[in-house]
Design a protein around this nucleic acid. Sequence first.
DNA 1: CTGAAAGCGCTTACAG
DNA 2: CTGAAAGCGCTTACAG
Lengths: 354, 354
Amino acid sequence: MSNDSTTTGKTTRKPGKRAVTVTDIARAAGVSRATVSLVLRGSPLVGANTRARVEAELRRQRYVYNRTAANLRRRTSSSIALVINDLSNPFFAEFASGVDGALGGKGYVTLLGSTGESPERQQAVLATLMEHTPSGFILSPAEGSDAAQLKQVLGAHANVLLFNRELPGADDWDFLALDNQQGAYQATRHLIERGHRDIAFFGGHDQSSSCHQRRAGYRQALDEAGIAPRAQWLVESAPNRVDAAARAGDLFAGAGHPSAAVCYNDSVALGLMLGLAARGIHPGRDFAVTGFDDISEAALATPSLTTLAVDPRERGRQAALLLLQRLDAPDAPALRTVAPVRLCVRDSSAAHAD
Amino acid sequence: MSNDSTTTGKTTRKPGKRAVTVTDIARAAGVSRATVSLVLRGSPLVGANTRARVEAELRRQRYVYNRTAANLRRRTSSSIALVINDLSNPFFAEFASGVDGALGGKGYVTLLGSTGESPERQQAVLATLMEHTPSGFILSPAEGSDAAQLKQVLGAHANVLLFNRELPGADDWDFLALDNQQGAYQATRHLIERGHRDIAFFGGHDQSSSCHQRRAGYRQALDEAGIAPRAQWLVESAPNRVDAAARAGDLFAGAGHPSAAVCYNDSVALGLMLGLAARGIHPGRDFAVTGFDDISEAALATPSLTTLAVDPRERGRQAALLLLQRLDAPDAPALRTVAPVRLCVRDSSAAHAD
DNA sequence: CTGAAAGCGCTTACAG
DNA sequence: CTGAAAGCGCTTACAG
């Protein structure tokens, strides 16, 4: 909360070159500062004549509006904090791009914070951002975030939109989720329609909410088709390519092999395909695979990966609009929005059951 | 410059719930606001006793420092604007992540702006950001940016670090470049060492500065090896996969075929590989290919792509530090920094000349 | 239609 | 070591 001078950057404006202010304009135009302010804010109270004189002076002196000063006086804010767990992940980068585009269009500026999946860094980043008095927060929480700690730093009353990750104890904040269950359901249905009945769910950590939901969608599709799930075909892995490749063998450990796998996400699916290839199994021909996310590699992989597109840029736009809506109605009940996902059928799921 | 109320978001703080201020703390602790301020700023002038009392009160009331107010009074700023031409490009997303990480560590907050490669949007975004009085700008200019226009909106005196793209007329601003020429030189040398002499330069638009520089590196390596460049083996394309794939045939239009190609970037290289495969030519076996950037697909592609890694996250860190350096020495001459790139040899360049 | 005055939340000489 | 006063650049009732 206090200003620790060892870690706080501060830059003094170049001395002698003070910015032009309303006072300068007022003096030069022969009016009061109040009148200049009214002109700036487009008030109809100012006479056309006076207005023209002031506007000419604003241009002449290249006046730049100091919105931070105005915000202070008006007790308003024109910024939104966007806090992202991993900006180097293209999914979140696209999301951020969508958020910023939408906010910019509404006159808000985006304060960026990246947490690198560290709850500690996240606390620090949020504390810093708070000092800049944003109107609200769009937060894709770092893994292992604690709702109580977040509320401690943000204040219980803050305008917060959570994205992507379920956060127990934070259900008084708005939440924008992907339809994980429906997505996995679609993928599983798709495989069933191709004749598969021995279908694994591969990858992810079950304690993560998204994995949990995707597994639920998978189970639902099996249920509907009257297929009994097999516990040994629920394989966990870290949500990345390397670990997924290493665990491909787990699918073939017991008696009876699956002929298809619904994967937790694209990275896992790509890893599984590598692992399959290493065992002489051709994904897309001998074995059907689906992913989740539609990362850019998905369409390029060999075979190209059937997956679920989540349109992260559009999600960003949506998140921005939801938060702005919240700002207009701070006391409305918390909103839970589930964004649809879209099945993209490609070659990796072309294998038929034999 | 003026506050156009139709496009400007403004959020009033929830009425009744005004934030705790130094005045509240001062009153409760029985000291003056000045003393509270001194405590906040860690001044040694305050007695241990008084300090403890004030600090207790700060905690009790959950005081949040209002840095924007402090910045106004001190005539300082603790924000840096980061303006990116295309945030959905993983290269720039990684860059942004590096910038934000480094700035955060130095107590600055990042104001994000994305321009979507539109010079018009760029002007608007910069104008908005200016109103928030950032200490400086890190700008990856949109294609077709005009230095004079940028100076108009930023003011000639602004602290600006340009990244990635040469901008004629802006050489009084700092510039962080990639070593395009050296990179292409390395790639070309690598192919020559594998026995190739018939090497094309494929893709990109020659008018872009990066393409120009990469071609220069390519030419330099040919020169040194005593190989005469052939005009028909300089093939232009849009810097993306689709157009590159479509133009693959151009390499084989004339008499005599190249056995290798140095590509403008990875997307182009991946496109070329697709185009080659479509003609029955196996990249990596029948034909050697190199890219530039080391995007995440590069290592995954079949064959994996030999390319030049530019480490965008580290470039971001570097850009942040360079800008902070500039803030400390506003009158130092403009700095031109060229960041090294690193050759990553993979399978796509394994083909030997026959 | 325009101006004088007060004030947003903070900091900084200046007294004491 | 602490406090009273002025002021950063803006806006907003309130007079006139």
